[in-house]
Design a protein around this nucleic acid. Structure first.
Lengths: 336, 336
DNA sequence: TCCTGCTGTGAGACCGTTCCCACATGAGAC
DNA sequence: GTCTCATGTGGGAACGGTCTCACAGCAGGA
């Protein structure tokens, strides 16, 4: 019933475990006869190398950990971060890594320590992260990369989108289609991406000579659908009065929440109000009307993070910092 | 730079590693002086027990694997399965398990073998799974539970929703609100849940004396948004002619896809057509109009799967098979 | 003939824990 | 004064692999 070991195979084949090990790993000399016998036994006994034992001696687990910090709500199922996780899973499997996924609400050391004990080869940190948690991780010398984070620790490999550029794309698109009275919902400014998206947008607006837009920015506490809905409902009066012809939110969830409120008030989108989001989560295309947005390549983020982490783990010397990802405007039904 | 070991601590404290081990594990005798010294060193050196070494001797890794098979598309970000995964992550952390997440498109042994090598303590299998993969896993004697699967292997612990009952709830709701010409989109019938949902629905309709509904069922190849949209577009002629007053799809994604097409044809929902889905994914409530649906408690599925697997791992003898989860009708804007 | 080098093999240390067992000390019971 | 028993400690095997090293046989060149 017990899983067969290398010793068991050696015993049955009448040779030493050294030879069996050599045959399995494929390095070193071995005779064809020994090889045949061992390979046959492996098949027969359904031998699987014990990764734990292997990790013990090689000091490499071939595991990586994904740490996802979210104060608000669950996370693997998050429409944007979930896609990153998916891409990580796929890319990691391709490089023969197994992936521990951890989500943490408390933003504590606990999950990090968990990973340290498991001796993961490396860590991928997603989203906002407390400064001290990063320092804590650094102390243990485990290689890590950050994805879409907010910290500016020097020398950290950090995969991000060109969010400022994305903000500009939105401003250009809206001004080009004749909008100058734009209502803006800005997600938490402590988060790098929300901050830069607004910055890029406002800068571009200013350059276009539409300066009073600053006054129309509402700052959200969270970046959720509910918050978007709520903010829009409180802002309904000026909207009804025709004060604004367009809406921009710094992520799709906020935008969709706001749109839902408008649709419930029988506002026609895009005829009366245009709407633009950011991220291009799956729902953006599914919503009715589908949402014009800026695509952030979550898949590429995931793939790059794994590939860079792998090179860090393998101690490659010249691991270049990745260039920021190029955002792309996706025009759909919600703007005209 | 290297991580300190128990040996290192023993050396510095001037005692044997046996004593250190005893102090750390808290079992066996130890003097207060030794304890103080060791605890101090643990703090000072930031000692973390090496889980790999511990797993080696204890034959327990405190890891569980989540295997997610999906032919179509990525999965952690799937609006329904992602929620299950989230709940698993949370529940597992509470019981001090780390979680390997694997998604597999090929439906091969590969991912399963991956887990066998890592010597996970147990496995959670989600969604459809090839019969032979299950047999493969069984051979290795690793405890596992299935969540929302389709296989009827005897004795397997299988956590599912009362899908047939859910189908009845939909039929009751629609007939009660005066609908008898209902168009039905049925997801892949190889999947247990889609099959039972339809069965419950049709049985209930028949009991209500509305027999011809069989003719209005369209079977989908996949259960995606795109498929729902596509099927509805091909069915547009009878709809426009007023042939149907309601729509039921066996999951939310299909329903939303179909709804989007209808909305694009300026069909008013629910005034002209009512729509009902199944699952209650987050997006169902966000869509405009929000979707009436049957809630499947994904969180509870995740929690139960971890709790049951834990008991299996700990070799508890009386692990009762779980009772099927109770579905709940959630009435929203899409029905009247 | 001796030396060198290639092929094939096995013994045993090692990775960082846990745990069993042996042993030492001192107190209390007889 | 010996015999328990509770308390505290250390030595060393074991977990399942990898890897270094020693060594044996045999070929070919000097």
């Amino acid at each position: 019933m017990d899983n067969p070991t290398i010793k068991e195979i050696a015993l049955r084949a009448g040779i030493s475990k050294s030879t069996v090990s050599r045959i399995i790993s494929g390095k070193g000399y071995s005779s064809p006869e020994a090889r045949d016998k061992v390979l046959g036994l492996i098949e027969e006994l359904q031998y699987k190398p014990n990764a734990v034992a292997r990790a013990m001696v090689s000091q490499r687990t071939h595991n990586i950990g994904v740490l996802l910090y979210r104060r608000d709500h669950p996370i693997a199922s998050h429409p944007f971060y979930g896609k990153i996780v998916d891409a990580i899973l796929l890319a990691a499997a391709g490089l023969n890594y197994s992936v521990f996924v951890t989500t943490d609400h408390d933003m504590s050391y606990r999950s990090a320590d968990f990973m340290m004990e498991k001796r993961v080869d490396g860590l991928i940190l997603i989203s906002r992260l407390q400064q001290n948690v990063i320092e804590h991780i650094t102390k243990f010398g485990v290689p890590y990369v950050m994805v879409n984070g907010s910290t500016d620790v020097d020398g950290v490999i950090h995969i991000v989108n060109q969010d400022e550029e994305g903000g500009r794309l939105v401003a250009e698109h809206l001004t080009r289609t004749g909008h100058d009275r734009i209502f803006v919902i800005a997600g938490p400014q402590t988060h790098r991406s929300h901050n830069l998206r607004i910055k890029g947008f406002l800068t571009c607006m200013e350059e276009a000579g539409i300066a009073d837009s600053e006054a129309s920015v509402r700052y959200a506490e969270t970046s959720t659908f509910a918050e978007g809905y709520e903010i829009m409902s409180r802002q309904w009066a000026p909207f009804r009065a025709g004060r604004y012809t367009a809406l921009f939110a710094t992520n799709d969830m906020l935008a969709l929440g706001a749109m839902k409120f408008l649709l419930e008030q029988s506002v026609r989108i895009p005829e009366q109000v245009s709407a633009v989001g950011f991220d291009d989560i799956d729902f953006a295309a599914m919503f009715s009307p589908s949402l014009t947005t800026v695509r952030v390549d979550a898949g590429e983020m995931g793939r790059q993070s794994v590939s860079l982490l792998d090179r860090l783990i393998r101690q490659e010397t010249n691991v270049a910092h990745p260039s920021q990802l190029q955002p792309r405007l996706i025009i759909r039904q919600s703007t005209s």
